[in-house]
Amino acid sequence: MWQKWFSVKGKSLFSIAFSLHRLTGVVLTIYLCMHLAYLTSIRMGKEVFESFIATTVTPQFLIFDILLVLAGIYHGVNGLRLILHEFGLTYESRKSILYVSVAIVLIVWLIASYRMYTFVMGV
């Protein structure tokens, strides 16, 4: 069953990419729900909303944010890669494209992480 989406023994990088895509998709969905919940809290008053937000903009929370951004970037870039292939293009070079997209993900993520770090820590 669904566990098979995440069984990667003996599989190639493409399957790992697929598993991660599913995993990040689930994470982003959960995040989306939380995000909406936070935003909705403004109906209970400004103070409630701001206290909610304040809990997230802390050094302790930074690690989750950074991981969340990784999930978002991965899901996005990998999604673009899939769209490219699913339009019927470039399977022959699918291996190099996979490597390139992983590289893009890492670069963008590192930059984003750095900027978030400076923002939260105030340096």
Binding site: S15, F18, F87
Partner: peptide
């Protein structure tokens, strides 16, 4: 969903993933 594992394991190197995408397009 283009895990493309089929093309990786095909003992005849047929690239089934390619055929699926071509039909999809």
């Amino acid at each position: 969903h283009f895990a493309a594992e089929c093309s990786e394991v095909c003992p005849k190197q047929i690239d089934p993933a390619k055929a699926v995408q071509k039909i999809r397009f």
